[in-house]
Design a protein around this nucleic acid. Structure first.
Ligand SMILES: [Mn+2]
Ligand SMILES: [Mn+2]
Ligand SMILES: [Mn+2]
Ligand SMILES: [Mn+2]
Lengths: 220, 220
DNA sequence: ATAATTATTTAGACAAAGCTAAAAATATGT
DNA sequence: ACATATTTTTAGCTTTGTCTAAATAATTAT
């Protein structure tokens, strides 16, 4: 598989995650920041290699083989992210683009040894689960503050929008990665949320609430 | 610079190291395991980008810019090799092909942090020097046993030929990476060498002697 | 000084991955 | 149901990096 094929397979995986329907050409083009015509070309190639099911005009979905390839790439991506943050001291919002490159390094032994070296982590620095070597992982336990019910608590593991303005807001309110946060109240009218942080109780707007991810315990 | 351009620049660097003459098209083709016509094509592109001096039929040599690019890639290659051996516990003869991929990852910050994490090593696992960020390094102090005079001693840092047969020979004679070896005598007739190892005094053939690298102190 | 050999370059082709513009299929609104 | 809009595909072109075969330059041998 070429680097580009790997990125397409990964994009298709992420787009079909959750949903059951086939993924559309335009959706892939948007995700990959490329043109629909290029996507059609690539889809044909992936179909030829039995990585996707493809019916003209009917969208695309991963085969068994495509799905396990996607999981292998995601495993590499997230293990490298852990390495960058834990060992090289990168900030969690700097590692994605580097891991986007490292995920394509070809050596099974390298990933096995990296996994051992990192202590076989189960989640990456953004709270996303790391698939095991055979492609299994706990279903995502990462939720937006806006999706959680009153009373729910969790560990802050990431943001949707990592703009400077938003990160500044978190800083000002002393919210950091790893902090435990609890939802005290939700205002139905405007979607604002009353949040208990490690330092204070604050009220955040619905925009903020739908940008902040918490890792919550399994049964939420 | 593309991955392929980087590999060509590195090959030209290695081929012109030591020698003053320009590097020939055929030499590059042999080193890169490709065809001379492909080399000519690539050389034109590199020349266009001012990475090499090129005169038709007269060979090629690196410009200042080409040379510093080569050193940056070599720095990355060797730092990753140190990482693989020191941190991931790879054997020194397994790391080259993986580093051949890792050397192309683009992120200055990544290499700076990797360097710090490894304690700014000065040599790679094969005894080759690691250029500093600004492209400086001690000239190679790695010599073949066959090139050294009687009396010289050094640390075993590598082999030319890593065939199973040769590695088996080293194993049988209890010669390992990091061992100190000393040349006790050289036979002019057949080039064989009497060698003091950590465990015994042995006689090695000229083939062996020209396959075994020692790191010797600067003034040898 | 020629002739033969070797090295290098050119010409033309191909596969991968992308693009634009146009055509065809599907979906939507009235 | 039909016209309009949207989505998807096709056709044709570009760039990068490779190849083979042929042409040309440089070197070596007689
Ligand atoms: Mn990628
Ligand atoms: Mn991640
Ligand atoms: Mn390389
Ligand atoms: Mn090395």
């Amino acid at each position: 598989m070429t680097l580009s094929e790997e990125d397409y397979i990964k994009a298709i995986y992420h787009l079909s995650k959750g949903k059951t329907a086939a993924v559309s050409t335009n959706a892939i083009a948007a995700q990959m920041d490329t043109k629909p015509s290029s996507v059609t070309d690539m889809i044909k190639k992936l179909s030829e290699k039995n990585l996707v099911f493809y019916k003209k005009y009917k969208g695309v979905s991963l085969t068994e083989s495509g799905s396990s390839s996607a999981l292998a790439i995601i495993r590499k991506h997230r293990l490298w992210e852990v390495f960058l943050v834990e060992k090289l001291d990168f900030a969690w919002d700097e590692v994605h683009s580097i891991a986007e490159q490292l995920e394509h390094i070809k050596s099974e032994k390298l990933i096995d040894k990296l996994d051992v070296y990192l202590g076989s982590p189960k989640v990456d620095p953004h709270g996303d689960p790391i698939p095991s070597k055979d492609g299994k992982f706990k279903k995502s336990i990462k939720k937006l503050v806006s999706e959680l019910p009153i009373g729910a608590a969790g560990i802050c593991v990431g943001v949707n929008d990592s703009s400077a303005a938003f990160l500044k807001f978190l800083d000002k309110n002393k919210i950091a990665l790893g902090d435990t946060l609890q939802i005290l109240d939700k205002e139905e009218f405007d979607g604002s949320v009353q949040l208990k942080t490690s330092h204070a109780t604050i009220r955040i707007s619905s925009q903020i609430a739908s940008n902040l991810f918490l890792e919550v315990s399994e049964n939420q």
